[in-house]
Amino acid sequence: MLKPVARTAALTVSTALAGVAFTACGAPSAQDDGKLQVVAAFYPLQYAAERIAGDQADVTNLTQPGMEPHDLQLSFDQVARVSDADLVLFERHFQTAVDKAVDDNRQGPSVDAAHVVGLEHLADEPGEEENHTGHEHGEEDPHFWQDPIRLATFGDAVAKELGTIDPDHAADYSANAAKLRTDLRALDTEYADTLSGCRRDTTVVNHDAFGYLGKYGVQIRSIAGLSPDAEPTAHDLATLHKVIAEDGITTVFSETLVSPKTAEALAHELGIRTAVLDPLEGLSTAAEDNGGDYLSVMRQNLALLKKANGC
């Protein structure tokens, strides 16, 4: 899925200094294939960029398939790409390493998804303890792409920026963004129609990457909070036991890219099923190998939610 990128940046290591410096030579758009160079921090941003840029740009994803994006550490070459690209797409407060690379090295245009999509304010789940809800994302939920309409809004911002950089193809970018919005509106309608009138509206997941599904009436209860590697407290687990029993929940969802052990242990204790939702923070290697993309994975998630919630 990812396209190879020919770079003109040269990375120079200075042994006379205690740090590492890089220098980039030549304009980033002066590639062998003559295409714009776009850097996306993680998968949903890459998907939108590829749909909108079409054949006019090479899109590089800093988070490789199968990698958990929260854990991303940038190589020297990746930092150089952030510095030199024609356009950088990222989400502030989601990946610390990318924020730092943009702040320290980026002078060209960028689109910060957190600035354009209208993130939702985080609301603590009932019964959560303070040490469990602490996280590095600030006070807003970063997982906006679970709402297809917000991803369409991000796509519109990308199209506008690409049109400014490359006015000769501005009409193409706008047309592609309109097509993307049409597809995402259809997906939004599928979610709304499928998840209306379910027997259950509470869904237990490993980490709280699905809060934006609340627009469809889905109430998310997470085991580990916003950070996928966080450990739940005894109070958290006791609260979940009660919720699962009272609401007749049939399934505990683990997810791609992180260990399912905690979700599986909780489900085993209560004698209910487990299944795997994909938060789409990064594309799994299995999804990439099978030709999956944002739309197909979101529809797979919808089918699993429909079954689990009795819709």
Rank of each mutant, 00 (worst) to 15 (best):
L151S: 05
A24D: 13
L122Q: 12
P260S: 03
Y212G: 05
V116M: 14
T233E: 07
A263W: 01
A49C: 14
L151F: 11
V297Y: 04
A49T: 08
T194P: 00
H121V: 15
N131P: 09
L17K: 06
V98R: 05
D166C: 02
D147C: 05
E136P: 03
V297W: 02
D172I: 12
L11T: 10
P228Q: 08
L151K: 02
T153S: 09
L11H: 06
G214F: 08
F94E: 00
C198R: 13
S254N: 07
R299Q: 10
E139S: 14
Q146T: 07
R273I: 04
V38T: 03
L119T: 06
R221L: 13
P260I: 04
G118K: 03
D247V: 06
A178D: 11
A113G: 12
N309R: 15
E255H: 00
S83C: 12
Q95K: 05
Q56I: 06
D147G: 13
S227L: 05
L270V: 10
L162A: 00
K215I: 06
I149F: 00
A49M: 11
F42M: 09
T189D: 15
L17C: 07
N131E: 15
S174N: 11
L184W: 04
A80P: 00
S75G: 08
I165W: 03
L36S: 05
G134Y: 06
S196Q: 09
P126N: 02
L195S: 10
Q64M: 13
S110L: 08
A287I: 09
A308N: 05
G248E: 06
T194E: 10
S83K: 13
N131K: 14
G26N: 09
E281D: 08
F42N: 10
G292V: 09
S227N: 04
H169D: 01
K307R: 09
L17G: 05
D32S: 14
Q300D: 11
V20T: 10
P148G: 07
